[in-house]
């Protein structure tokens, strides 16, 4: 870059070129919705309807190639997975009960 600088005297041509490349890229992205974000959301919501998993153990990767792009979804599922429907049916009342217990013990303390 120093050499180029030396030949062209100023650094403005470099600024111009960098901007042209960068903005061409950014303008292109601006017109596309966040495809990866949308895919991630929809795929996860679909799978979580059937299997419960830890959302932190999900990896979604998109590799953009020249002619073909790949979408890789990697979800770690515990071996003892339960159907999400069951899990929510069991879990919710339990958490409510816990909250009630906590509230009750608070009341007692106050009393």
């Amino acid at each position: 870059m120093n050499l180029l600088n030396w030949f062209s005297r100023g650094s403005a041509p470099i600024a111009r070129e960098r901007l042209q490349i960068l903005l061409a890229h950014e303008r292109n992205e601006r017109h596309q919705p966040d495809l990866l974000g949308i895919l991630r959301e929809e795929i996860l919501s679909l799978i979580s309807r059937h299997i419960s998993f830890d959302p932190d153990k999900v990896q979604i990767k998109m590799d953009r190639g020249k002619s073909v792009s790949t979408l890789a979804v990697d979800i770690e599922i515990p071996n003892s997975f339960a159907a999400a429907g069951d899990a929510s049916r069991h879990r919710r009342p339990r958490s409510k009960r816990l909250r009630n217990d906590a509230a009750r013990s608070m009341d007692q303390r106050v009393a």
């Binding site: 403005a12 600024a15 111009r16």
Partner: peptide, 16 residues
């Protein structure tokens, strides 16, 4: 600065 190639010129900015 623009004349010496040290700053983007008006034409550069307009073109971009």
């Amino acid at each position: 600065r623009a004349a010496r190639g040290e700053m983007l010129t008006i034409d550069d900015v307009l073109e971009i």
